[in-house]
Design a protein around this nucleic acid. Structure first.
Length: 271
DNA sequence: ATCGCCTCCTGCGCGC
DNA sequence: TGCGCGCAGGAGGCGA
């Protein structure tokens, strides 16, 4: 499942292949993504040149001279570059054919991903305008979390997974960063101290940076190859380790559903 | 305003 | 070995 590090890795991988390249054709085999892919998207994009690829949260922004295409990978989506005669697989829903004979191919078995078109400032798009700060920016820090969380009763794990609070913290990294910060995921967000939030902001940055770095190495050929599932697994400290020994104290890692999501923590190290 | 539940969809793992 | 079932998961939408 693509978390922010994978989206960023995808962006970096795609950019050198697509920058300044022109779209010759758009082939939509299955328009039924999370939101229907509009015909307008295809017609408008043909003949356009990709000026840049940016990222906001888990959204990729493909900039052209007349507007921007937004792509979200959902939880099973991937984008890769293939040659014009590349083999097609099941769930390859969209191709963008470029004038350098390369194809940008959107693959998404569960179709939770989406593709949008916006003529104006992409950051003003309804799906992006309310997003919280980027976790790796300076404006995301303990003070931000502390201020926003006052009087909030929601579990801190749900709080940091809320994209209006901070973008890019998915289920895996929420558990991982809370473990490193020593905070139990079920605690009410409004009851967590400023000191703890300062620690948490740091561990969120730490976990995401480490993962981007790893994505940069293990997924170096991500855009050319058939993906690489589970690349991050070996580094995880609590996620999917229920019953196994805590790396700090050897207590068994607990698993609990919080906000409809599996959550993992050490009941000894996290208070 | 905030919370928590529901939904979309497919692949996987489990039990028989 | 094969079948059927239940579940996971990002995040918007909605009812309370």
């Amino acid at each position: 499942m693509p978390e922010l590090p994978e989206v960023e890795t995808t962006r970096r991988g795609l950019l050198p292949h697509l920058q300044n390249q022109t779209i010759n054709n758009v082939i939509v085999r299955n328009a039924k993504l999370r939101w229907p892919v509009t015909k307008k998207l295809s017609t408008l994009l043909i003949g356009q040149t990709i000026i840049n690829i940016e990222r906001r949260g888990k959204y990729l922004i493909f900039e052209t001279g007349i507007g921007n295409m937004l792509v979200h990978l959902g939880m099973s989506g991937s984008l890769r570059i293939t040659e014009a005669d590349g083999l097609r697989k099941k769930h390859d829903h969209i191709d963008w054919v470029f004038n350098n004979n390369k194809i940008l191919r959107f693959h998404d078995p569960r179709r939770f991903g989406s593709v949008h078109w916006t003529k104006t400032d992409p950051l003003e798009h309804p799906l992006l305008v309310k997003l919280g700060p980027e976790p790796l920016n300076r404006e995301f820090n303990g003070t931000h979390l502390f201020t926003l969380s006052r009087k909030r009763t929601v579990a801190i794990k749900n709080f940091i997974m809320n994209s209006q609070v901070v973008v890019g913290v998915g289920n895996i990294y929420a558990s991982e960063s809370l473990f490193l910060a020593g905070i139990r995921p079920s605690r009410a967000a409004g009851k967590v101290s400023k000191t703890d939030y300062e620690k948490l902001a740091k561990t969120i940055k730490q976990v995401l940076r480490a993962s981007i770095k790893q994505g940069g190495t293990t997924l170096r050929d991500f855009v050319n190859e058939a993906g690489n599932p589970g690349y991050f697994r070996q580094k995880l400290r609590v996620y999917e380790r229920a019953g196994q020994a805590c790396i700090n104290c050897a207590s068994p890692i607990q698993q609990k559903v919080i906000g409809q999501r599996a959550s993992y923590y050490c009941s000894h190290c996290q208070k």
